[in-house]
Each structure stands twice: as C-alpha cells, then as structure tokens.
Design a binder for these strands. Structure first.
Lengths: 153, 153
DNA sequence: GTTGACCTTCCCATGATGGGAAGGTCTACA
DNA sequence: TGTAGACCTTCCCATCATGGGAAGGTCAAC
C-alpha cells in the first residue's frame, strides 16, 4: 500500500503519516525500489489506533505510551487506566476553565443592549470600569492552555 | 515607566508586551534616549484591557477589534456583543467536543480493571476490537513484535 | 570600576496540522 | 514514443500565544 491508500484506509492524512513517522510515533515505513513508502495491514492498524486516540483527545506523547502498552502482552492495565485518568483530568480542567469564561461572558453579554448606542458592560469590564456590583472576574486566571483541543481544525 | 514596570503593573510579561507591539495590537511604545521603551498610564490601561480579554479567552485578533471599538466613542454596542457571542459559541463548541471525549473515556475507564492483568477495554477500543463481545485473544497477539517502535518513554 | 539588574534585538521551540514548491515515478492513452 | 496527470519524495513555511536564551547596551549602587 502506498501512502495515499494508507491515508484513505486509516483516516490519517499522508502529511500526518509522514509526520508521525518523523517523530517516532510510527515505525519507519518500508520502502519500495522507487523510494515510495509501503504499508501493510499492521501499519494500517497502528494508524487507526492513532486516529482513534487522537479523536479521544490523547496527545501524541500519550499515544506513544498507549501504543507501547498495546504492543506489550505483559502490560498491566493499570498503566493504561492511569494514562486515561490523567487525560480525563486534563480535559476536565480545561472544560472548567472554559466554562468559567462562558459564564462570565454570558453574564456580561446579557447586560449589553447590542444596539446602536456605545455603552456596553463588556467593554466596561475589559476597560476596568468599576463594575456595578458583584465582581465577576472569576473567569479563571489561567487562559494559558484552555484552548488546545485537537480535533478542531 | 520601563517595560519591566509596565509588565508588573499590567500582569503582561515584558516578552508579550514586545510581541503585542510587534503584531500591532499595541501602539508602538515611546522610546527614551537610550532606546528603552517608555510607557504611560494609557499604555497600562491597554495592557490591562488585553490581559482581561485574554483571561476571558478572546484571541489576539478579537482583542484587536475590541480595543478598536473601545477607542471608538461612536461604536455600536451591537458589534461588541457580536464578537462576544461568536466567542461564546466557539468556546461552547470546544467544550461540547471535549465533554464528548470525557464521556467516552469515562465509560471505557469504568470498565477497565486497572490491575496487573493486560486485558483492557480502553486498548480494545483503540485497537479496533469489536466492543463487548468475546475476542480477547486477538488484541494480545500483536505484542509478539513489541520492540518495533523506537519511541520509548 | 565593577557588579548586577535592567534593557535591546534576534533566533529557536512548542503541538498538530496544512500549504505549497521543486522534482522524481508510474500509468494510461493518443 | 510522447505526454498528461496522478501520484510520490523532501524541504520549507505558517499557524497561535508564549517562553527561553544568547549577545550586547545602559544605568545605578557600592
């Protein structure tokens, strides 16, 4: 199988297949005489594994470990579960952070008339105006990494 | 005010202040005779505005527009609200996506014993096994060539 | 006159992905 | 036999916001 067919069969783009190979997530593909990469059923399996794991939000680094465990017949399922639990925790933290943003934004937006006039509590908040009453700045201080979700492109 | 003080006063790192200037989000800072950037109260205001907007998850591109509206006394609040609404929608879409991942992962994890044994529904799912019926010998088979991957750790 | 805390610009890295150029290879078809 | 075009190859660039760090200038305190 050439890379285009492997891409088709796995749902992973040819570009990404080469990338995964380059970073060592995927074993180096066999080569034909003409230099083209050649894939077999096992490679397709790995690509599908990677694809599914990416869809579940696992990072490439986590997938490297999961794939290693998958190949290890003597793996303790404990390790798989630990990786998954950590990932869930990470997702939940990011969800909570974003939900804090949404709450704050909805609150502000609900008080903005959204008409021709310039007065707007959203800008008031951003500009640091004294808020009318209860401060609503609890949106979560770390905008740091709340934004990275994989399958969104 | 020098850049370090401006950073302190605004919560935006000196590195990011220079970056915001370089991409045009922030006006070019005044310079002292020695070449150092010099900031006044207005600059600090803008930096704080940016900081708050980042905390609410707005992208730099959105902040550019918000800051422009803030400076425009004749702005229609409609525009501010529209930017905010679009941002909320984006956040909600990402939250929903991640929540889907969490649901799937929790479901899988709840069926994983997490012990010394190798059988694990999480890997079964990633490996593409038929979900809850028989075939558990199938998954372990590939471990025969466990050492193929260069990626370790 | 040295130390050390600043400041400057410039380059590099991140993570996962896509775009695209320049050039090689193979197949189908006139 | 020639050629079109659908593939493949490698290499470089861009994203988005952020930090790290090098090499070198400036200034105040001791």
């Amino acid at each position: 199988m050439k890379i285009g067919e492997a891409a088709e069969a796995s749902g992973v783009s040819a570009k990404m297949i080469r990338y995964y190979e380059s970073i060592g997530l995927l074993a180096k593909a066999a080569r034909r005489d003409n230099g083209y990469r050649d894939y077999d059923a096992r490679d397709i399996h790995d690509l599908r594994f990677i694809k599914r794991a990416r869809t579940l939000g696992f990072s490439v680094e986590e997938i490297t470990r999961l794939l290693g465990l998958w190949r290890d017949a003597a793996r303790p399922s404990r390790e798989v579960k630990a990786i998954t639990a950590a990932h869930i925790e990470d997702l939940e933290a990011r969800i909570a952070e974003m939900q804090g943003m949404v709450s704050a934004l909805m609150h502000l937006a609900s008080h903005c008339h959204g008409n021709d006039r310039p007065d707007c509590p959203i800008l008031d908040e951003l500009g640091g105006a004294k808020p009318p009453q209860g401060r609503s700045a609890e949106a979560g201080r770390a905008a740091s990494k709340a934004s990275r979700s994989p399958a969104r492109g």
